[in-house]
Write a protein that binds this DNA or RNA. Structure first.
Lengths: 219, 219
DNA sequence: TAATTAATTACACATTGTATATGATTATAA
DNA sequence: TTATAATCATATACAATGTGTAATTAATTA
């Protein structure tokens, strides 16, 4: 036994993690090549060289593989996105810029995005999809909102958690809508509306609207 | 051929509708008796006295039965809820009262509610769950918001459709959260926060908050 | 009545996800 | 080191979902 071994993952834990990683890699490759719905768990197991039942031990449903993959990707990009919007003038600009970067990825991976969002929304009431661990996007939004609260721009009588939840849900909804009809909506424009609504609310505030230089209007 | 026959539904259409209604009734009875997940499509078909394949012709997945049932119930109650909140002082009070009534039903039917919301959220990008026909709850919220716009209380630079969508999603999210942990959250209190956030937004408006008599605070 | 259209049905099938028992590895302790 | 328990992988079997196809039945139209 080497020093610090009990802090590091044991051999068993490591092997398990390696299997998970391999499953994710194999599965995502297959999804990309032949589509999510035309790829069976059987096939994934075969290519990953494990039993089908073992696959189910790691991921209870096929969607869970996509979910974990997306979590990984978004966590990877979270910090650099946070850094890149830090110096923008206000919360609205920061949110728009951050979501804009996130959607660059979404536009390239529409199918994966749809699967993942559908899975998370469906299981929203169970811990797995929405409570276990913060998403990269959620962390980004939490940082931006926390900073907005510190600077006095965002109200402090509502918890960050609830604010992030609201924003995250709205974001997801817009993306889902866009996925259903990509021609109709311009993703960025829709997001701009939602962010404006999130920050200023549905109330009609003549004076504040003037101050903000006019809100986004519908065409 | 009797007069006005082409305006009325034909025999075939009527029989089809009757079959659908029978399926819904049979299924909901079974769900109530033995739970949603312990009821199979086979069993529903058997009790409804139709072939399993016929059942799938009417409802592509089991959840769709629940969805249509809930749509029916909510449409039934929509008008009377709208009427009952008409004379309240402002939009916020109207929304709270309306949602309060809706949640009386939710609290009695948690399983059905969860199934239905999960199904709608999952298929948000396809027409079926969120675009085909207005929900009762959506109609209620649309009416209240439209009235709020007329009286100048709610901003008019964002379409009713988008406002309703946002509100509907937030509502659904809160309910889903509550379903996952009924002990922790008081449904009404959570809703009150969400409605406040929806109307006034995330921005910190010192003067308006004073005017509104203080916003809802977290405990 | 005959022809056409639509719905129901029976049948077969691929796939999903679970339950159960068994073998293989690893961690823990005597 | 050996024994023991725990954990993961596996094989097998199974109930259920959802789909595709073709045959049958019912309803509409001419």
């Amino acid at each position: 036994m080497e020093p610090g071994d009990m802090l590091v993952e044991s051999r068993m834990e490591r092997k398990k993690r390696e299997t998970r990683q391999k499953i994710i890699k194999v599965a995502m490759d297959l999804f990309q090549k032949q589509g999510f719905y035309d790829t069976t768990m059987e096939q994934i197991a075969e290519v990953a060289d494990i039993a089908r039942k073992t696959l189910y031990n790691h991921f209870p449903v096929k969607e869970a593989i996509v979910d974990e993959y997306v979590r990984g990707v978004s966590k990877e990009f979270a910090q650099e996105i946070i850094d890149s919007v830090k110096n923008l003038p206000d919360t609205k600009a920061r949110l728009l810029a951050a979501l804009d970067k996130a959607y660059a990825w979404v536009e390239i991976n529409p199918e994966i995005t749809g699967i993942c969002l559908g899975y998370r929304f469906k299981n929203m009431c169970h811990g797995s999809a929405y409570n276990e661990g913060e998403t990269g996007t959620q962390r980004i939004m939490a940082e931006i909102i926390r900073y907005g609260q510190e600077t006095g721009e965002i109200r402090r009588d509502i918890s960050i958690k609830l604010l992030v939840l609201q924003l995250d849900i709205l974001r997801g909804t817009v993306v889902m809508g866009w996925l259903g009809d990509k021609s109709k909506y311009k993703l960025r424009k829709e997001i701009a509306k939602i962010v404006d609504l999130f920050i200023y609310g549905a109330v009609d505030r003549q004076e504040s609207q003037a101050k903000a230089g006019g809100a986004i209007t519908e065409e």
